[in-house]
């Protein structure tokens, strides 16, 4: 009986092509890339794209619909998926292309979210820093600190992103706080005051990259927090701005998207072949070419080896930060906190 079952399963496996379900962001798995993988590994790949962290989370936790084999998410989100028990450990020996990565990404224990208890769960794929974008005509030399956003010389010539999480984090860096993702209540209260000061110094807070570009050009903005990273530079330059990109000495916030295997992966071998394939130079090199994003194989110009990078991590209390930020944004005065 058992022999029969094994035989049937084996035959089934031979006759039907293996199927890999991928959950990713637009630009991570273009059709030509998928097709080449399908031919090489004689498998069928189904890609589902998401456009927000929340969309990704709800797809992964959907009661109905397909179970995904691999997903791409940033390091902070990876910790959330690990904590929810949704990930399966990876076998580094099945991922020979890890050796091609820059030293910065090979030191995995230094990037929170990649390993848990010494076991590999996520592999870095692409990243973007959130540096300072400045108008070269208004700066003799590139600004080197996050504190430039508070500089009264640029009052109402500063743009910041309308978002609580990163604003608290970079304000913490600017204020010399060691762990920007782990703020104490006191630190948060202090930073609230700092953010009110920032609010009084900025022109406004933007939501969309194209909105930032329009405001930057129209109001002759001097300096801006680049929430969308170097991708914003192209759009600004197209709009006629002469802009530079600077990394503050306090350290730069950066998101790092990784590939991981879910606990639903039916064929872990195939899933890891996909992750390894994503690190092929032919595939990873498409990120700068097509998306304006950096890959983990080649040093990018705006991120020099010595730069201090703070890969995003889950913050101590996202809800609290957001609530505070809403009040700051609405214009509450220091006395009312």
């Amino acid at each position: 009986m058992l022999v029969l079952c094994v035989l049937i399963l084996a035959c089934g496996g031979v006759s039907a092509e293996a199927l890999l379900r991928v959950l990713a962001w637009p630009g991570y798995a273009d059709p030509d890339v998928v097709k080449a993988f399908e031919q090489r590994y004689k498998a069928r790949v189904e890609v589902t794209f998401v456009d927000s962290d929340e969309g990704l989370w709800s797809r992964m936790n959907a009661k109905e619909g397909p179970r995904f084999d691999v997903l791409a998410a940033n390091t902070a989100e990876m910790q959330r998926y690990y904590a929810a028990g949704l990930l399966k450990p990876l076998d580094a020996t099945s991922l020979p292309n890890l050796a091609r990565q820059l030293p910065r990404f090979r030191q995995r224990q230094r990037i929170p979210g990649l390993e848990q208890l010494g076991v590999l769960y996520a592999v870095p794929f692409t990243y973007s820093t959130m540096g300072i974008i400045y108008d070269k005509r208004q700066f003799a030399s590139p600004p080197d600190s996050m504190n430039v956003l508070w500089d009264p010389r640029f009052r109402h010539k500063v743009l910041d992103f309308n978002g609580g999480q990163h604003n608290f984090s970079f304000s913490a860096l600017a204020s010399g706080i060691e762990h920007p993702f782990r703020l104490s209540n006191d630190e948060r209260a202090r930073l609230t005051r700092r953010l009110i000061d920032l609010r009084r110094n900025v022109l406004t807070f933007y939501n969309l990259p194209e909105e930032a570009t329009e405001l930057f050009v129209r109001h002759k903005v001097a300096v801006m927090f680049g929430n969308y990273g170097t991708q914003q530079l192209n759009s600004l330059r197209r709009a006629g701005a002469d802009v530079g990109y600077a990394l503050p000495k306090e350290g730069v916030l950066a998101w790092l998207d990784c590939w991981a295997m879910t606990r639903f992966a039916a064929d872990p071998m195939l899933a890891q072949q996909w992750i390894n394939y994503m690190l092929e130079p032919s595939v990873s090199s498409l990120l700068p070419k097509r998306q304006g994003l950096a890959n983990t194989l080649v040093e990018s110009e705006d991120l020099q080896d010595k730069a201090k990078v703070l890969w995003l991590q889950p913050v101590e209390d996202a809800g609290r930060r957001e609530a505070l930020w809403q009040r700051i944004m609405a214009g509450d005065r220091p006395g009312s906190f």
């Binding site: 109402h156 009084r200 406004t204 509450d332 005065r333 006395g335």
Partner: peptide, 14 residues
Amino acid sequence: GDALQEKAHYPYMF
């Protein structure tokens, strides 16, 4: 009173 807010950073202001 204290419930009044600062709005200079909103586009409808500037």
